[in-house]
Simulated scan of single mutants.
Amino acid sequence: MERNLSHIALFAALIAVLGLVPKIDLSAGVPITAQSLGIMLAGTVLGAKRGALAVLLFLTLVAAGLPLLAGGRGGIGVFAGPSVGFLVGFPVAAFVAGWVMERTTLSPAISATAASVIGGIGALYLFGIAGMALMLGKTLGEATFLAAAFLPGDALKAVLAGLITQSLSRMRPTSLLSRA
């Protein structure tokens, strides 16, 4: 139990630290950040439930007003902007990535990359695109077009998540809780 809580808190902190990487603002009002890499890693390393809990802890701290999002953003107001769909989709993305990771038997690198693409891109974009369409008054097609700007960076993050997960499994096989 204590180990699970420690891992959940550690990954919430990792997601917060990735917010220190400077964001790139797009015209749609949704920034490109490194924090989605933390979301992917939470799922691939911790598994579905613990990964989602780590992200929920992070979002609770953001909602409480801590400036943990990229660019020093925080507070309940961030859930009223164009990035709300991505924020709401964060725990779902971590859960889906963890769920896929738990059910694959391929090498950790391949499994984690696939899990990151399915959860960290696919599931996250479902929520993100819907949120952008709603908050920006765009159609789903227009919001999908706007979200396409994130794809190259997110594909790179998915590969990085696969490589990092593979490295963790080689250095400390017991640290890969998604495979425990």
Results as ranks from 00 to 15, higher is better:
Gly141Trp: 13
Gly38Val: 05
Ala63Asp: 03
Leu126Cys: 15
Ser27Asn: 14
Val159Asp: 09
Leu26Thr: 14
Ala109Ser: 13
Glu102Thr: 06
Leu163Phe: 11
Leu46Pro: 09
Gly51Lys: 02
Gly141Asn: 11
Gly122Asp: 08
Gly19Ile: 03
Leu46Gly: 01
Gly77Cys: 02
Asp25Val: 06
Pro152Asp: 08
Ala148Val: 09
Thr105Asp: 09
Ser107Cys: 13
Ala147Asp: 12
Ala130Thr: 14
Phe145Tyr: 07
Tyr125Ala: 12
Pro82Leu: 10
Ser111Pro: 04
Gly65Leu: 12
Pro22Glu: 03
Met171Ile: 11
Ile129His: 13
Phe95Val: 04
Gly141Phe: 11
Val92Leu: 15
Leu151Asp: 15
Leu140Gly: 05
Thr44Ile: 00
Ile15Arg: 02
Ala143Leu: 01
Leu66Pro: 05
Ala9Thr: 07
Met1Gln: 13
Thr144Phe: 08
Glu2Met: 10
Gly47Trp: 02
Ala63Glu: 00
Ala148Pro: 02
Met40Val: 11
Gly98Glu: 03
Ala13Met: 09
Ala97Trp: 01
Met40Ile: 10
Ala70Gly: 15
Thr44Trp: 09
Arg170Phe: 14
Gly51Ile: 01
Met135Ala: 13
Leu146Tyr: 15
Ala63Cys: 10
Leu156Arg: 06
Pro173Phe: 03
Gly98Asp: 10
Arg172Met: 14
Arg50Ser: 11
Val100His: 03
Ile121Asp: 06
Glu2Tyr: 13
Leu87Ile: 06
Phe79His: 05
Leu176Gly: 06
Ala70Pro: 06
Ile32Trp: 05
Ser178Tyr: 06
Asp154Cys: 12
